[in-house]
Amino acid sequence: MDVRARGTSLQVRMDQELRLSRPATRAVRNGVPLVLELDVEVRDGANLTLVATEQQQFEIRYLPMSEHWQLETPDRAAPRTYPRLRHVLAELSELRLTLDAIPLAPGDYELRTRIRLDLASLPAPMQLPSLVNRTWRHDSDWTQWPFRINA
């Protein structure tokens, strides 16, 4: 993870490893879109007070006619397509985020991120089974990264 401040925005580069479970892959191949939620928090480095928060959603779809995979990201108006699922996951593994309009005073901060599969976005019949089935758990732990804003 790398964090750089540019004015009132933060440039975040995240490298992570994403894998989908077999049920999740099977579901998306059968037309169930999967929504991944990325939670980002900026906390004060001294007392861990929440300074800013951001949530972004990434949606993965499968297109059976062209047998391509589609990734919808918040930073692009049109979705991108990929011939393989691993290309989608590789794209998500190297995220470049820009957090705008975050007024940060000089000092030490901590950036916390996590990514998880949004079970609530699943179709209703899948929600109860997904609550009791551990294979549907796609929650990463919080990852912290300290950074400093210089005067």
Binding site: N30, G31, V32, P64, M65, P123, P125, M126, L128, P129
Partner: peptide
């Protein structure tokens, strides 16, 4: 036409795929 076929096919596959989950939900309830 391909878009329509894909959408309908996908919708059907989606419902068919959810059949198991639907049954599980009903059994759970």
């Amino acid at each position: 036409l391909t878009g329509s076929i894909e959408a309908e096919y996908f919708r059907y596959r989606n419902v068919a795929f959810l059949r198991g989950s639907l049954k599980q939900s009903f059994i759970l309830i």
